[in-house]
């Protein structure tokens, strides 16, 4: 069978019940989706399947023949980052970075679906994604700001949530 990964037509040899996550990582060498839990609990493996965010660890590759799969590599390279990617850099929304590919995919789908900058709505859209480092606030800042774009990536932004003890 075939799937389209980040615009490239790829032939898949793995058996149809193989989780898409492992097809991407082990067969096709697309490494940004992470095997965080492989049980649908963490969101680190989320990719876009025909534009919708899905856990690749819960998706049998045989159930999505000819699908268009987009991972964070396909959203933008270092020189061509999307606004969401730039916002994550600018707001330090990635710390260890392991949850980041899934977070950015989910945030991208949310904003492309007309999502607002409302923190509660963003939280709802990212509810399936676990981050252990950031405490989430910088991620919410980044997603809220991503729509406007225009980040100066030579600096980072101060989080509106940050309270500095004096």
């Amino acid at each position: 069978m075939n799937i389209i990964v980040n615009g490239n037509n790829r032939t898949v040899e793995s058996p149809p019940l193989t989780p898409l996550l492992h097809v991407l990582r082990e067969e096709l060498d697309v490494l940004s989706p992470k095997a965080g839990c492989e049980n649908g609990g963490c969101g680190a493996c989320t990719v876009l399947i025909d534009g919708a965010p899905r856990r690749s660890c819960l998706t049998a590759v045989g159930s999505v023949p000819d699908a268009e799969v987009t991972t964070v590599e396909g959203l933008g390279a270092p020189e061509t980052m999307s606004d969401v990617q730039q916002a994550f850099v600018h707001y330090c929304a990635a710390q260890c970075g392991f949850c980041t590919p899934g977070m950015i995919i989910a945030a991208t789908a949310y904003l492309e679906g007309g999502g607002s900058a409302d923190r509660v709505e963003i939280s709802e859209a990212l509810a399936g994604h676990v981050c252990r480092c950031t405490g989430y606030l910088k991620i919410l800042d980044a997603v809220a700001a991503a729509r406007d774009g225009g980040f100066d990536l030579s600096t980072t932004a101060e989080s509106p949530h940050t309270t500095v003890l004096t």
């Binding site: 019940l17 989780p19 492992h22 492989e38 649908g40 819960l58 998706t59 049998a60 159930s63």
Partner: peptide
């Protein structure tokens, strides 16, 4: 949907 079965198979 596969949300329960796919990881169980894996």
């Amino acid at each position: 949907g596969g949300t329960l079965l796919v990881p169980d198979l894996h």
